[in-house]
Structures are given as structure tokens and as C-alpha cells.
């Protein structure tokens, strides 16, 4: 294992975790507000390991909607992971079997953003980087949700630390974009997501992503002539 690659994975993960701190605290608080068993609520952070879906599920369980509706809604919120799985399938072909089973467990937005925008060509280095970043998020996420259960939201809401996520994603896009079809894909995805913002359960995100992929593919056809 290449230690410098592992270190880079941790270093790249830490800034992306900063905005997850208030979010994790809110998830912890939501467990308390929803009247859930604290251990069950906290366990969502390692059983589901996806903040937005956890928050959706916990809030809905507390609001007394039908169990099936709560589960279905949380899964719709998480449907974007299908696209991550598709995008990384070619890279994972060169990985050992154990990692093809473990890797998806750690495939959260931030890990996807990091690995998709800095494509590591070497299979071993990719795996080390992926595991280092993923494990960093995993440990910190479990800790911060537990903290939210114990102490509530200690980060002032008016800081709006959550805004750090779009900033960091912009940074990853700027650094990772290599050709103009990718620019077309990003702009089309942003525009369509904006127009579809009113759709329920974050489905606008899916519609916008599909539009972006389509636009990028067409742009590449045009480029190739």
C-alpha cells in the first residue's frame, strides 16, 4: 500500500467533511425529535451511510407516515447512487473481487466526487485512495451523528456551513474538467436541475443528471464529427 496515496485520500476527504459536521449533528438531533430509539437512529449512519436519505427516513418515521412510504421515499432520495455505480463500473473491473463488494458500501457523494474528478489510472493507487477517503468519512460520520444525539446542533446555523459542499464540488469540477463536452454536460445538468427544482424528493437531481449525460454524449459526437 502506498502511504502517500492513502494520506492524500485522507487530506482530500477532510475539507469535504467540514460541511458534513452540522449536517451530521442535525441527523442526530432529528433522531431525538422523531422519538426514535437512539441506537436505531444512530445505526442508520452505518447501515445506510447516506446523510440525506437518513434524514429523510428519520423525519418520516417520526411523522407517522406509512412505513412503506418512508422507505420508498428514502430510496428515491438515494437513487442517484445507481449513476455512481454505473460510472465507476469500468474502473472496478480492474479491482479485486473483495473490493468490488466492499467499495460500493463506501460509495457516498463525496467519495464519488473525489474519485471521478481525479481519475487515478493505477488500480492499486485508486483502491488505496478510495479506501482512505471512504474510511475517513465513515469514522467521522458515525462519530458526528452520535455527537448530534448527545449534544444537539452546536454549530451556529447562521454560518451556513452546508454551503461548503457546493463550493467544494465547484472546485472539483474546475480541476477535473478536461474537455468541452464535460463543460456541456455540467452546464446542461445544472440548468435542467434548476428548471426541475420543484419536483418532489430530489427527483430534479436525477432528471438534471440524465439531461447532462445526454448533452455531454451529444457534444462528444459533435466533437468527433
Amino acid at each position: 500500500m502506498d502511504r502517500s496515496v492513502a494520506r492524500q485520500g485522507v487530506i482530500d476527504a477532510l475539507p469535504l467533511f467540514v460541511p458534513a459536521i452540522p449536517f451530521g449533528l442535525v441527523v442526530g438531533l432529528a433522531v431525538t425529535d422523531a422519538g426514535l430509539n437512539p441506537l436505531v437512529g444512530w445505526s442508520s449512519s452505518w447501515l445506510i451511510f447516506a446523510g440525506a436519505a437518513q434524514l429523510t427516513l428519520i423525519t418520516l418515521l417520526g411523522s407517522g407516515v406509512a412505513l412503506a412510504a418512508a422507505i420508498g421515499t428514502a430510496l428515491v432520495v438515494n437513487a442517484r447512487h445507481l449513476m455512481y455505480s454505473m460510472a465507476l463500473a469500468p474502473i472496478f473491473q480492474r479491482q479485486p473481487r473483495w473490493f468490488r463488494w466492499l467499495g460500493p458500501y463506501l460509495l457516498i457523494d463525496q467519495v464519488f466526487a473525489l474519485v471521478t474528478m481525479s481519475p487515478e489510472d493505477d488500480a492499486d493507487r485508486f483502491r488505496t485512495y478510495y479506501l482512505a477517503a471512504g474510511a475517513t468519512f465513515w469514522v467521522l460520520w458515525l462519530a458526528v451523528v452520535a455527537l448530534g444525539l448527545l449534544i444537539g446542533p452546536v454549530v451556529p446555523e447562521e454560518w451556513n456551513l452546508g454551503f461548503a459542499i457546493p463550493i467544494l464540488f465547484i472546485g472539483l469540477l474546475v480541476v477535473g474538467t478536461e474537455n468541452w463536452p464535460e463543460v456541456v454536460a455540467a452546464l446542461a445538468a445544472a440548468a435542467v436541475t434548476y428548471l426541475a427544482a420543484g419536483l418532489p424528493n430530489r427527483t430534479g437531481l436525477l432528471v438534471g443528471s440524465v439531461a447532462g449525460v445526454t448533452a455531454g454524449t451529444i457534444a462528444e459526437r459533435v466533437r468527433r464529427g
Partner: peptide
């Protein structure tokens, strides 16, 4: 199939940015 897969990263990140501001 590989060609569209290459654009998932850029598209999803851009879409997430807008979704996070919603």
C-alpha cells in the same frame, strides 16, 4: 455505453450543486 458513462461525474456534480441550493 462507455461514452455516456464518462459524463456522469460532471453531470451529477453540477446537478448536486443546484440541488444543494434548493
Amino acid at each position: 455505453v462507455l461514452i455516456p458513462l464518462r459524463y456522469i461525474g460532471s453531470a451529477v456534480l453540477a446537478a448536486l450543486i443546484v440541488a444543494l441550493l434548493t
